[in-house]
Amino acid sequence: MNSSDPFELQKREYKKMVQQVKPKPTVIKNGIMAFLVGGTICAAGQLLMNFFKARELGTQDAGLATAAVLVFLAAFLTGLGIYDEIAKYAGAGTIVPITGFANSMVAPAMEFRSEGMVFGVGARLFTIAGPVLVFGIVTAWLAGLITLVLSL
């Protein structure tokens, strides 16, 4: 898009027109829903954690068991076609917790089953979760490096 574009003025005017017409995202409603649903998931996680701790699992093991239960539930609900219905209203509330991660792995697995186990499920399993893992691990690595340098 260079400055000699004959449609530049038209494009700029059109952009304004689109901004007038385009519906505003319902930020406040989305925020409240995300808080409620996300909070509920986290509270459920805490209850599970307490439950496992009361059964004399150590803090770390109780955390792992909690994560396993949440991941299982999210995967199960995705399989039943319910998770995306909740997410429609909950938005970030269902994406951010560990359940969102489970959903983002099971959804492509179901979707690409039709292309076979290797090139379908295998190759596409991480299409959405992949970037999260890559940048998550890179960030963790950088954080580790910084800690190491500071501790010298």
Binding site: K22, P23, K24, P25, T26, N30, T78, G79, G81, Y83, D84, I86, A87, K88, A90, G91, A92, T94, I95, G100, N103, S104, V106, A107, P108, M110, E111, F112, T127, I128
Partner: peptide, 12 residues
């Protein structure tokens, strides 16, 4: 996205 992916679609 995959159809079961939990995304919130834009109003537009």
């Amino acid at each position: 996205f995959p159809t079961e992916q939990g995304v919130q679609r834009a109003m537009s």
